[in-house]
């Protein structure tokens, strides 16, 4: 898509994704597909593995998750990896939200230059693959600005997801009734006071569901940084496999760990949403 096709109007929506993409992008549908695919793979690979005489060693897996020693509970490598993944994801998410809010406010500012910069940024990010962006940060910007692999990874994830988050924020801000702006203005509030006390608190309700989807998306896409060997869940999984050759067991376990975390997140937010609704 080119810039000229996108009218640079105050906060106008980028074209919506086709219905079919929205369907496959929703949390419940993703989870269902995820489960179905996992099931198929599990079944297929189990029978396949039997045929090729794969030596299943599930009993060796728990030690990579946790163990009990004299000192009590000890997290295994995979749990430590999960911790690293979460830390990476949370840091990237916070950065992405700040950047996303800036981009959203730029688009809503009504300044022609502001919107042009914001839309240019969005189109740029939306049209390059995450992996290429990671290589850009690590192999190009890394040497120039002296970024280590961990920083490069965080920046990549933050920049990539800030584009998606800014659209969520913009839509949430626009969902608040125009009358709220007028009421806030008419008691003399500044624009920033209006955002802070009136608009943003109300748009949280509209943003919560898509933002959860975005966190889930971010946690999943954080696995990509394993290609530059940043220590996190997927990298740790790979390292274990190169030591033990238990690739089937480890990859299944890693997939399940990701799934458990993202499911807990989705359920938690559904619960939050309900409570928030009651408060209204």
């Amino acid at each position: 898509m080119s810039l000229t096709e996108t009218p640079i109007l105050k906060g106008q929506a980028l074209p919506e994704r086709p219905a079919i993409q929205r369907f496959f992008g929703s949390v419940s549908v993703s989870v269902a597909i995820y489960l179905a695919v996992i099931g198929l793979i599990a079944w297929g690979s189990y029978t396949g593995a039997q045929n090729m005489g794969y030596n299943w060693q599930w009993y060796r897996i728990p030690q990579y998750l946790y163990s009990f020693t004299d000192d009590g509970f000890q997290p295994g490598e995979l749990l430590i990896g999960l911790g690293a993944t979460l830390q990476l994801s949370i840091t990237a998410f916070v950065l992405a939200s700040v950047l996303g809010l800036l981009v959203a406010l730029l688009r809503l500012s009504g300044l022609v230059i502001g919107s042009a910069v914001a839309v240019g940024f969005l189109e740029f990010i939306r049209n390059i693959p995450l992996l290429v962006l990671l290589y850009l940060f690590y192999y190009v910007l890394g040497p120039i600005f002296g970024l280590d692999r961990y920083t490069a990874s965080i920046l990549t994830l933050a920049v990539f997801h800030s584009a998606l988050i800014s659209e969520i924020l913009r839509a949430g801000i626009n969902a608040v009734a125009q009358g709220q702006w007028e009421a806030a203005k008419s008691i003399g509030m500044t624009t920033s006071q209006t955002y802070r006390y009136i608009i943003l608190p109300q748009s949280v309700r509209f943003m919560l569901p898509p933002m959860t989807g975005e966190v889930v998306h971010l946690i999943k896409s954080s696995a990509i940084v394993s290609v530059i060997a940043v220590a996190e869940l997927t990298t740790f999984g790979r390292n274990i496999i190169s030591d033990t050759y238990m690739s089937f067991e480890i990859w299944f376990t890693v997939a399940i760990v990701y799934m458990v975390v993202t499911l807990i997140l989705s359920i938690g937010v559904t619960y939050l949403e309900r409570r928030y609704d009651v408060d209204q």
């Binding site: 009358g179 709220q180 006390y197 009136i198």
Partner: peptide, 30 residues
């Protein structure tokens, strides 16, 4: 705008604030 108050057809109260907070937010913040 602080001198000139406006009452709208659609009320435009702040739905996320209590009545008391609706009344105090202007004086406190502005």
């Amino acid at each position: 705008r602080q001198e000139v108050g406006m009452v709208f057809q659609q009320f435009n109260l702040f739905p996320h604030l209590t009545v008391l907070e609706n009344l105090t937010i202007g004086p406190m913040k502005v």
